[in-house]
């Protein structure tokens, strides 16, 4: 850590959810004191400020926060797409310096290869890892069936709806059988109805696959519905404010949003976010 990042007005916060709890001891993801700094015209901007967290094997963790709070940057660092300024990300004990095929990622936009059919998009990963063509296509066909797009196996991305494209993107990420699936607001660009269907699909999928999932969203309902744990992030600079356990029973469906336990949890989250929002806003007022 270079001195420039330390401000005298704030005490150095070493950890948020670290040192490890019982769950964290068998953590597959460990983010240790991670800072990410961007060069901006106005100077350096701290996007992620000394964040530490741990995600246990098989856990579904959401990261919630206002736009621009650095939650996507944090996720990109877990993916190996963003270089840490300080600290490190350990995936299964190994530092992430570049993307690794055992870490899958689904972006906000599907980013399907437009020149490839659904089947070949999904087969891309296994092929890239050197699997024979027949095997890659067999893996793709299995996943196509799972996402319910058998009829569209040879369709090209531009002929599919947004929701279908995102399902293909999820299947493509799963084709390499990743141990960790990172999802960056994957349903953020979809309309409300499609989003609800996709959330139920993901809950169902979750029961079938064995991956640890880290899910970034700004939608609190979505986060609580899907997750075992919700991490709430603050903006400017990005930090983790609170780590909330979601002990609602599984399997869940979107019907859960009417239950009392759910609502209590949501109220907690909203209070936290509201007070944080006010603080950030006032800070901005003082600056300007």
């Amino acid at each position: 850590m270079t001195p420039s990042l330390l401000r005298p007005d704030q005490p150095l916060r070493l950890v948020d959810t670290y040192p490890p709890s019982a769950a964290a001891r068998q953590a597959i993801i460990r983010v240790e004191d991670l800072s990410i700094v961007f060069d901006a015209p106005s100077g350096q901007v701290i996007a992620v400020d000394r964040v530490s967290l741990a995600v246990a094997q098989g856990e579904f963790v959401s990261i919630v926060g206002p736009s621009g709070c650095g939650k996507s940057t944090l996720l990109n660092a877990m993916a190996g797409l963003e270089r840490p300024f300080g600290g490190q990300v350990l995936m299964a004990g190994e530092a992430m310096r570049k993307p690794r095929p055992e870490i899958g990622m689904v972006f906000q936009q599907p980013h399907l290869f437009p020149w490839k059919s659904v089947r070949r998009n999904i087969a891309h990963g296994p092929r890239a890892l050197g699997k024979p063509k027949a095997e890659a296509l067999r893996i793709a066909d299995g996943l196509i069936e799972m996402i319910g797009l058998t009829r569209f196996a040879s369709a090209y991305p531009h002929t599919l709806s947004g929701g279908m494209q995102q399902r293909v993107a999820i299947a493509r990420a799963l084709a390499n059988q990743p141990s960790v699936l990172l999802m960056d607001e994957p349903f953020g660009a979809l309309d409300a109805q499609t989003r609800a269907v996709m959330q139920d699909n993901l809950l169902e999928l979750r029961e079938r696959i064995n991956a640890t999932i880290v899910f970034v969203t700004h939608d609190i309902d979505e986060a609580i519905l899907l997750s075992d744990r919700v991490l709430i992030m603050s903006a400017g600079p990005g930090r983790i404010l609170r780590d909330l356990q979601v002990s609602l029973p599984r399997p869940r469906t979107s019907a859960i949003v009417a239950e009392a336990a759910y609502l209590a949890l949501k109220r907690d989250c909203l209070d936290l976010i509201r007070s944080e929002g006010r603080r950030a806003f006032e800070q901005m007022e003082i600056k300007t």
Binding site: P99, M105, F107, H111, F113, A128
Partner: peptide
Amino acid sequence: VDRGLIRAAQMLGTPQPQMLSEIVLL
């Protein structure tokens, strides 16, 4: 070239020659 396509290809383990001759070229 859409950065998203390149990132998606990177995440899937696309080796550099294929990245250049397929994703970047197309």
